[in-house]
Design a binder for these strands. Structure first.
Lengths: 348, 348
DNA sequence: AGCCATTCTACAATCGATTGCAATGTAGTG
DNA sequence: CACTACATTGCAATCGATTGTAGAATGGCT
C-alpha cells in the first residue's frame, strides 16, 4: 500500500535509489534490515526480505561495492600484474601474457572474483609491487612472469602471503611460484634437434629475464653434454613483436656458418622466425628446423605447425588460482614445477 | 628524536602502519594533516609534508584505496567488459578480445586508471550490465563487442553516460560506439575476390552477433551486385578455437561445388581455415583464396601471410578511451565509424 | 491473562580517508 | 605593544554498507 507504482502508471519512472538508507525509507524499515535482506541473511523475515528485494529490483538498486568492501575488509578482487622489467617495450598484448591472462580470468570469474589488470614498470616506479599489494584494493595478487624482478618479488613475498607468481623456482625462494622447468625445457628442445642430426644451432631470445635465461642454459647444457662438434650460438631477440621481426631478419643473415636449427625462447619468436625464413627462401624444416616454446593456441595455426616445448598453461593457471585461494584463507602452498612436454608437429 | 630507528639497529623491523590515524600518531599530527600531506596539498607546510611522506615510506604505508574512493566518490577504475552473448563457449582468450584489451589497457594505465576485467554471460545473468555499471566500483565502462545484446546495451546507455562500446553503429542508437564499417568491410572482401575472377565464394562465420552479420550482408550485397553467376554460400563457424577447427574441416568437405574463395569473419577463422586446407592438400591461394577480417598482429605471422580487411584497432582503442574520458567529465561524444582497409598480403 | 521463548527489527559503532570550517600560531606593520 | 593578515593545523562530519546487541513484537502454553 505504500507502493506508489500501483497507483500511478505502470511504466512510471521510478526514482533512482542511491543508497540503502533511501531504500529503507521507501520500505519503511531500517538500513540494517535492508542490508541483511539483500544479503539473504536468515535473520530477517522471509516476507520482508522478498519485499525489499523486489523493491531493490524495481528501483534498480545495487549496493555500493566501495562501501561494502571497506566495511567488510574484503574486496573480492584479484590483481593480475605483469611486470615489464627487462623489456619495457614489451606490450601487454604479448600473446603469452594474453593467453595466460585469459585462462586466469576465466578461472577467477568462475569463483566470483573480479580481475584487476595492472601493468607494472619497475624502472619508473621502484615499489610497484608494494603499491598493488598495499592499496587495499585487492585480496590477492597473481603475477605473470618474474622478468628481472626476482629480488623485489622476494622482498614483498616475505610479508605478504596471498601472492602467486608464474615463473621459475629457485631453491629456497620465498614466493610461491607455478611454472615449467625451463632448464629442462631448453634442454629437451636442443636435444631433440641434436637427435635429428643437426649440429649447428642458435638460441633466439633475450636472456635478461630469468625464465628465458634458464631455457638458454638448458639448451647450452644439452649441446655441451652432446659434444661431437655441436655448437650453440646466441642471438638476443626482444619480446615486442615490432622489434622482434627486424632483429630476426638481421640475425638470420649475420650468423656464423650454416645454421641448421633454431631453439626459440617463445612461440612468438618461433613464428616470426619461420616467417622471416620463408621470405628469405629458406624452407622450414627442410633447410632449417625451428622449435618454439610455450605451445600457445596459435602454435597450431602456423604453417608449418609449430614443433614446440609445451607449457601446461591451462593446468598451471588453475593451480595458481587454487594456491592463491588457500593462501587467502590463511593456508600455505608450495611451489609447483611442471614438466615441459615436447610437442612434435611440423616445424622441426 | 622521536625517530626510534636512529637509536635501535639500522635494520630495525618497523611496525606496519595500517591507517592514516596510526601514522598521524607517530608523526604527532592529526589524521587530516597526514591526508593532506600525502596528497601533496599546498595547504600543509613543506617541512611537515616531507616529514610525513618520509615516515609513510619508512613504514611502507599506502592509503587505503577503498576508503579513499568511497569518500571521494571516484574510483579511478574502468571496467572492460566482454559480453559472451551468442557464443558462450567463446573464450575470453579470443585473439581479437585480447588484442583490443591489450591496447585499451595500455591506453588506460597511461592515464592513471586501473582496469577491471569482466566477463559477462547474459544468459546466466539478465542484468549483467547493470551490475557492473551500478556496482559503485567503476567510473566508466568499455565494452568489447555487442554480441547479440544490442537492446540490453541500449537500455543501460539511456541512463548511464560513461559507456563506450566497440561495435557497430545503427542509425539513431543511444550508445556511443566505436568500430569499423562492417558492411563495407564485408563488401570489400568479397569484391576483392570477385575482382580476381573468383565466382564461387563461401562466407565462414556465425551471424548471430550483429557485427559479423553485417560483414556477411556486405559480402552478400557485393555478390548480388556483381551478378554474372557469382554465388556466396554460408557456413556458420563458432568463435571458440576448439570448435572452429573441426567445423571448418567439415565445412570444407561438405560444401557445394568447387569453392574458389573464402571470406572469413575473422582472422582467427581465416588462419584455422588455411591450416585445414593445408592438411587437405589444398593450396592457398593457388587452389583457394582466403581473406580474413581484423588484421590482428598474428595475421602477419601466418604462412602465407594473411590478406585481410583491416580494422584500426589501435586507433579505435585510443578513440574509445578519449570518448569515455569526455563522457566521464560530463561531456558528450558521438559514435565513430572507421573505414575498413584492404590489406593485400599472400593468402588471396 | 500471564509468562517465557523465539523471532525480528532498530540503533549505533565501525571500516579509513577526505575536506569544510574553525582555531591556533606566527609574522608583519603602524 | 596592539592588531591585522596569513599560513597551518585540528576537529568533526561525511561517504555507504555492515553487524553486534538491545529491545520490541509475536506466538505458544498453562
Amino acid at each position: 500500500m505504500a507502493d506508489d507504482s500501483d497507483i500511478s502508471a505502470p511504466e512510471a519512472p521510478v526514482r533512482r535509489v542511491r543508497n540503502i538508507a533511501e531504500l529503507a525509507g521507501i520500505a519503511g524499515v531500517s538500513a540494517g534490515t535492508v542490508s541483511r535482506a539483500l544479503a539473504d541473511k536468515p535473520m530477517v523475515n522471509a516476507r520482508t526480505r522478498d519485499r525489499i528485494q523486489a523493491l531493490a529490483r524495481k528501483h534498480g538498486f545495487q549496493v555500493n561495492q566501495m562501501a561494502s568492501k571497506l566495511r567488510r575488509q574484503k574486496t573480492g578482487v584479484i590483481a593480475v600484474v605483469i611486470p615489464l622489467g627487462h623489456d619495457r617495450r614489451q606490450h601487454i598484448s604479448d600473446p603469452f601474457f594474453m593467453t595466460l591472462l585469459g585462462v586466469l580470468a576465466d578461472e577467477l570469474t568462475e569463483r566470483g572474483y573480479d580481475v584487476m589488470l595492472s601493468r607494472a614498470i619497475p624502472q619508473e616506479d621502484a615499489n610497484w609491487l608494494d603499491r598493488v599489494v598495499n592499496s587495499g584494493m585487492v585480496d590477492g595478487v597473481l603475477m605473470i612472469g618474474q622478468s628481472d624482478q626476482f629480488d623485489a618479488i622476494e622482498d614483498v613475498a616475505r610479508s605478504y602471503k596471498p601472492l602467486v607468481v608464474w615463473g621459475s623456482n629457485r631453491a629456497g625462494q620465498a614466493h610461491c611460484s607455478v611454472g615449467t622447468d625451463n632448464f629442462l625445457g631448453g634442454r629437451m628442445a636442443a636435444e631433440y634437434l641434436l637427435g635429428k642430426g643437426l649440429r649447428s644451432l642458435v638460441f633466439l631470445g633475450d636472456t635478461t629475464g630469468i625464465e628465458i635465461d634458464e631455457r638458454y642454459r638448458g639448451a647450452q647444457a644439452a649441446v655441451e653434454d652432446f659434444g661431437q662438434g655441436a655448437r650453440l650460438q646466441h642471438m638476443p631477440i626482444h619480446l615486442s613483436i615490432e622489434e622482434m621481426t627486424d632483429e630476426i631478419g638481421v640475425a638470420m643473415t649475420s650468423l656464423d656458418g650454416n645454421i641448421e636449427g633454431a631453439v626459440c625462447a617463445s612461440d612468438a619468436i618461433a613464428m616470426a622466425t619461420i616467417r622471416q625464413l620463408h621470405e628469405l627462401g629458406i624452407r622450414v624444416p627442410a633447410d632449417m628446423a625451428v622449435i618454439g616454446f610455450d605451445d600457445l593456441p596459435l602454435a597450431r595455426h602456423s604453417v608449418p605447425q609449430l614443433t614446440t616445448i609445451r607449457q601446461n598453461i591451462g593446468g598451471g593457471a588453475a593451480q595458481m588460482v587454487k594456491r592463491l585461494m588457500t593462501k587467502i584463507e590463511g593456508g600455505d602452498a608450495d611451489a609447483l614445477v611442471m614438466p615441459p612436454e615436447l610437442v612434435v608437429r611440423a616445424s622441426a
